[in-house]
């Protein structure tokens, strides 16, 4: 017998160290702030179904009655927020979204079953944060269509926007093919101001499928 074979204790010590290291690893494992709760497929499906939007005409009720079940969050930065915002909205700048305090508040609101409406200057600004929170399991967060710009423009008569479709995104506002058709020779047409705002009417059926 060789000396190296008569010493299984060495192996045992080495293995114990190995196990201890693994245990330390598990104990010190950083708990991630967020975890994806929607898979990629679920996220895409939710987007295609056009779920979880908040319509401008719904604001009428929120502003007038200030229900406890809905909180408005303005994700623009503090300065712009100070210059004007939807009445009753709280400021939650995009850059501070991951702050522990804000997360705590969002989580508390979620647990209380309160709906959160995010809005930015336009829909685009709030789109990213909104998508992010939907994907990490904040299912109570909605996105205000049209954003602050649309609200500001229709501030006086929000309820009538129920029939408007200008705040919907994802629809062509022009007949692209016709506009961009080759203009033989007439490269510079003099009429500068013709901007045909021929909004294509969306069909009722395409609302659900087209989203927003």
């Amino acid at each position: 017998m060789h000396i190296h074979e008569r010493n299984p204790w060495r192996t045992l010590i080495a293995v114990s160290v190995f196990v201890v290291i693994l245990v330390i690893g598990f104990l010190t494992m950083p708990k991630p702030l967020f975890e994806y709760e929607k898979s990629m497929d679920e996220s895409i499906e939710a987007l295609l179904n056009g779920e979880d939007y908040f319509y401008p005409w719904e604001l009428e009720d929120v502003i007038a009655n200030k229900p406890d079940s809905i909180v408005l969050f303005d994700i623009r930065d503090n300065f712009v927020f100070g210059q004007g915002h939807i009445p009753g909205a709280e400021n939650l700048s995009a850059s501070t979204l991951a702050d522990p305090d804000n997360l705590e508040r969002l989580t508390a609101l979620r647990d209380m079953g309160v709906s959160i409406v995010l809005y930015g200057e336009n829909e685009l600004q709030a789109n990213g944060p909104w998508m992010f929170f939907r994907q990490v399991g904040f299912n109570n967060i909605k996105l205000l269509l049209g954003g602050y710009e649309y609200y500001k423009a229709n501030e006086d008569d929000l309820y009538s926007t129920i029939d408007d479709d200008a705040y919907f995104s994802g629809f062509p506002r022009f007949n692209y093919a016709e506009m961009a058709a080759p203009k033989d020779g007439s490269e510079l047409n003099a009429d500068q101001d013709n901007k045909p705002v021929q909004v294509r009417r969306r069909e009722k059926t395409s609302v659900a499928a087209g989203g927003c």
Binding site: M40, M131, S169, G170, P172
Partner: peptide, 27 residues
């Protein structure tokens, strides 16, 4: 590129989640 920028931005977020770099959105 989409009709306006929302759908393009959504695609951007989704591809970003998959760790893709070098993608942009036409505003």
């Amino acid at each position: 590129i989409s009709n306006d920028d929302i759908r393009a931005d959504q695609t951007w977020v989704l591809t970003k989640r998959l760790g893709v770099d070098g993608t942009y959105v036409m505003k």
